[in-house]
């Protein structure tokens, strides 16, 4: 026998080295009894292993093709089971695809979603820019890296077209770049959710959006006095647009009658008037909360009250 144990080990090592790109489990499985096999080959006839079988690299290439190791089918039964599960999930997805399509007015849901792809590319570019924009700053709707609006603008101008052109070519990606692309998409979507969520919260938070000190914050009631210093009852306040101005709250009204007090107008609590007792009494026979008065108020009251109604009658009585 001209072939030694060492020759066989060397040959096997070189074959294994040539198969180094395969998953270790597959490679081990392919070569596990190769030493015994080569011993057999060596025992049968004279000549070196290379003379008999060719170079180990060529042997490895032939082995790879014959064992189908280039494809995923060689991984063994466990891989086949996984492949079967994947196939079932795909079938289910395809059925769902066809069933949802008509609801959207398309043959399949996928057809509709494919139309949205360019929109996703734009959104992806924006999200990428916004993510970079958080550098040296906080979460902002407009990317502002290191507080620079200009940099954020440039970022958007670069990121969005880049994302779109990348999206148009994403069909050419090989397996790993494609997986990377999908992982990036998931990360960006998660970031987007966090971003919008945080902005939403900030909007609901009054601090920063309203002046902290509103000089009318403390107002509980409004007392209107006419030119003669008399308290006006059932007064209404309007702004320049005719929208009612609401200030204060009818604290003194009974719990169930606060709506009435609102409708009656200012002051809510005439007995708490800060100045003088010279109140203008309501016209006889109508209680302060009566309904006929409010209907006439918005336009009539400001001009009518001082001259026509209030002055002549009540003055003599008090």
């Amino acid at each position: 026998m001209t072939v030694t144990e060492q020759d066989i080990t060397d040959y096997v090592d070189r074959v294994r080295a040539a198969l180094a790109d395969l998953p270790p489990a597959v490679r081990d499985e392919l070569t596990e009894d190769l030493p015994e096999h080569l011993t057999e080959v060596a025992a049968e006839a004279d000549g070196s292993l290379v003379d008999r079988l060719g170079e180990p690299e060529a042997y490895a290439a032939e082995l790879r093709v014959a064992a189908g190791a280039a494809g995923p089918a060689t991984g063994g039964r466990r891989d086949e089971r996984i492949a079967a599960v994947v196939r079932r999930l795909r079938d289910r997805r395809d059925r769902l695809d066809v069933r949802l399509g008509p609801l959207l007015g398309y043959a399949t849901a996928g057809e509709f979603l494919r139309l949205l792809r360019p929109a996703w590319w734009v959104l992806r570019g924006y999200l990428a820019a916004a993510l970079i924009g958080t550098l040296g700053g906080g979460l902002t709707l407009f990317p502002r890296p290191f507080q620079s609006v200009l940099a954020g603008f440039l970022l958007l101008v670069v990121a969005i077209p880049l994302s779109v052109s990348f999206g148009r070519r994403s069909g050419e990606l090989r397996r790993w770049p494609r997986v990377l692309n999908q992982v990036t998409a998931v990360v960006l979507v998660c970031f987007g959710l966090v971003l919008f969520q945080s902005l939403d919260q900030r909007r609901n938070d009054p601090i920063g959006y309203y002046p902290v000190e509103n000089q009318y914050d403390q107002v509980r009631d409004v007392f209107v006095y006419d030119g003669e210093g008399r308290l006006v009852r059932n007064a209404r306040l309007f702004d320049q647009n005719g929208a009612p101005i609401r200030l204060g709250y009818p604290d003194c009204a009974e719990p169930g009658r606060q709506d009435e007090a609102f409708r009656a107008g200012y002051p809510y609590c005439p007995e708490q008037a800060p100045f003088g007792p010279r109140s203008v009494p309501t016209p006889p026979g109508t209680p302060p909360t009566a309904s006929p008065e409010p209907t006439a108020t918005p336009t009539a009251q400001p001009t009518a009250t001082p001259t026509a109604t209030t002055e002549p009658t009540p003055q003599p009585t008090r």
């Binding site: 042997y59 082995l63 014959a66 064992a67 189908g68």
Partner: peptide, 16 residues
């Protein structure tokens, strides 16, 4: 080829 037969045996075995 030697490697073809060896590889085929591995593959048929893996295929059950």
């Amino acid at each position: 080829g030697d490697a073809s037969v060896y590889g085929t045996l591995r593959r048929l075995f893996a295929a059950g």
